[in-house]
């Protein structure tokens, strides 16, 4: 079932300068989608349009078969969660507790149920010990974990990560990636759209969408997309480490064509 379908979407912040040009695609439920592309290729704009933060100019967006309009935007928004890049600028509450509660308050969750929900989702992202801490006392990774808990608590069906790990240190990046994979495992029906510059992450996703200059440049499974290395080089996108390694090995006449991941490659080479 397609949870999100975008048709002929064109959008520009200024007239005659479209950021997105006639984009159409569909996303199936339960998929992990990686949206990659250079800065200014329109990735974040696309995310904001899907989340209903920008007004549509032309084209349509359907969420769970329902057309996104001004009227149903607040209803459909409950199905879409978005985690932004800057950990500081999406921390709304005075403490971790208040921040997770913010979305619940907006969704009119009764006061009595809030504490249980807050504790449940704080535990999911391992922030139980920090519930009463202010944002200044948290690291970037911890703040992003709170942001994830805040989004998860609202029970969305689609979660967009808009470069959610870009401002974190390697440890924080790894942590957040693990939490994303964990919640994907816990709820198979959850659809994740991850906007990223991380080619490795894209390589491990279910489907890759490459945006370039506001147009869909490539689309398909990671194998399909990264197979086309000349086309990727055309827009200066890097290849995943495994792909590069396989290329180099092929050049040396070592047959590693069927290898799917790094582990298999190591095994094969050790034979």
């Amino acid at each position: 079932m397609s949870v999100l379908s975008v048709k002929n979407l064109t959008f520009g912040y200024e007239k005659d300068k479209p950021v997105l040009k006639n984009i159409s695609f569909q996303i199936e439920q339960g998929k992990y989608i990686a949206l990659i592309g250079h800065n200014g290729s329109g990735k974040s704009t696309l995310a904001k349009l899907i989340a209903g933060l920008l007004e549509l100019q032309s084209g349509t967006i359907e969420v769970f078969g329902e057309l996104l309009t001004d009227k149903n935007i607040s209803v459909l928004r409950q199905k879409i969660g978005i985690v932004f890049q800057n950990p500081d600028n999406q921390f709304i509450g005075a403490t971790v507790r208040d921040d997770i509660a913010f979305g619940l308050e907006n969704n009119c969750v009764p006061h009595k149920e809030m504490d249980a929900i807050i504790n449940e989702f704080a535990e999911k992202v391992n922030m139980t010990d920090f519930l009463d801490k202010e944002p200044t006392r948290l690291s970037g990774g911890q703040k992003q974990r709170v942001a994830i808990a805040g989004v998860l608590a609202m029970n969305p069906k689609i979660i967009i990560f808009d470069e959610a790990t870009a401002m974190l240190d390697p440890k924080g990046k790894k942590e957040i990636r693990e939490y994303i994979l964990k919640m994907k495992k816990e709820d198979e029906s959850l659809t994740i759209i991850s906007i990223t510059h991380d080619i490795e992450e894209a390589y491990n996703s279910d489907e890759v969408l490459v945006l370039n200059n506001g147009e869909i440049f490539l689309k398909g499974t990671p194998e399909e997309v990264f197979k086309d290395k000349n086309k990727l080089k055309e827009i200066d996108l890097d290849l995943p480490f495994l792909m590069k390694l396989k290329d180099k090995l092929s050049d040396c006449d070592i047959d590693v064509k069927d290898v799917k991941n790094l582990e298999e490659l190591v095994n094969k080479l050790c034979q």
Partner: peptide, 9 residues
Amino acid sequence: NAMEARGYN
């Protein structure tokens, strides 16, 4: 944006 995305009205 973050507030709106989390349903604040």
